[in-house]
Nucleic acid binder design. Structure first.
Length: 311
DNA sequence: CTGGGGAGGGGGCCC
DNA sequence: CGGGCCCCCTCCCCA
């Protein structure tokens, strides 16, 4: 299991980077393009993905025993698997609302957000479970129930009627949430689409644009190095680089990380399975970023990238 | 060239 | 509507 380690700092000291790395202001970000979600896949008749993180025996045992027929949703007290506790649950200083809800209809209806053919989900087989048992991924429970890459925070006791999107089947606690969600189904060509006055980027809805506009307003400033961020939590994460705080620990090796995403990537390095495969040379990689790096280097140097890379 | 890690950014969802 | 949180992704650096 993964667990945050309150106050754990510099448990695995590494030579720190010398100041913030220079970043190109025009960093390409593929996710600026609306991704196809597996919610969409389900409606398109495409097979639902497999949850790779269940290769953790801890989770697997709990999960398979308690949740057959329910898309692998574990049954546990308080909505938690007793022995595999989400890191966010214990994160110091955070609200304790972060529970996943095993009875949440979302968990049975939604699927993971992987549209990438290179992704593990699309290539895994049942053999994943029967393969290496000594080397497994361990993961926070949060990560198991990703429908669209968003938080699975839900209130355990929340009852009541859910509002279902007729287009994708997602459910929401309130009609207003559903209404807001429905705007994301709009086309960028829609009359309702909004354009950012600063950069001209178009968004399907006002909320989406409002979110984007925040990124132009770097009002959260680090009082140590004066670097500014658009979101408070970005600053929060940045501050850890100053304090050395690393609240996210790896259960396998004890290594601690300041960032949950980096822990997640680290977890993949413990897996014996390399899910990302080069279309050209069949070499496999544990992380998609490694595969991408491979594409950009040896294998495709001087050749036609388009033939080998799935978009 | 690959593997690993640090840091940061964008958008979606919930409350 | 705004804040908080989360996930995914990328860039960069280094061994």
């Amino acid at each position: 299991m993964c667990f945050p380690i309150p106050g754990l700092t510099k448990r695995h000291p590494k030579k720190p980077h010398q100041g913030p790395p220079p970043r190109t202001p025009t960093m390409p970000r593929s996710f600026l393009v609306k991704k196809i979600k597996l919610d969409d896949f389900s409606s398109a008749g495409i097979a639902a993905p497999h949850y790779p993180h269940f290769d953790d025996p801890c989770v697997l045992g709990q999960t398979l025993s308690g949740a057959v027929g329910n898309l692998g949703v574990p049954e546990a007290e308080e909505g938690f698997i007793p022995h595999c506790i989400t890191s966010s649950k214990y994160q110091v200083g955070k609200k304790s609302e972060g529970k996943f809800d095993s009875s949440d209809p979302d968990y049975t209806q939604e699927q993971d957000d992987y549209s990438d053919p290179d992704s593990p989900q699309s290539s895994l087989s049942a053999g994943y479970f029967s393969g290496e048992t000594a080397v497994t991924d361990s993961y926070s429970i949060d990560a198991f129930f990703i429908s669209d890459g968003r938080s699975r925070r839900r209130s355990e006791s929340r009852g009541g009627q859910r509002h279902i999107c007729s287009e994708c089947g997602k459910t929401y606690a309130t009609s207003s949430n559903l209404s807001r969600h429905k705007q994301t189904h709009r086309s960028l060509d829609s009359k309702m689409a909004k354009k950012c006055p600063t950069c001209g980027k178009t968004y399907v809805s006002m909320p989406a644009l409002a979110m984007h506009i925040l990124t132009h307003n770097l009002k959260h400033k680090c009082n140590v190095c004066s670097k500014a961020f658009s979101r408070p939590w970005l600053l929060q994460g940045h501050m850890r680089s100053h304090t050395g705080e690393k609240p996210f620990g790896c259960a396998h090796c004890g290594k601690a990380f300041a960032d949950r995403s980096n822990l997640r990537a680290h977890m993949q390095t413990h897996s014996a399975f390399k899910h990302y495969k080069c279309k050209r040379c069949d070499k496999t990689f544990a992380l998609k970023s490694y595969l991408n790096k491979h594409y950009e280097s040896a294998c495709f140097k001087g050749s036609d990238h388009e033939c080998g890379i799935d978009s």
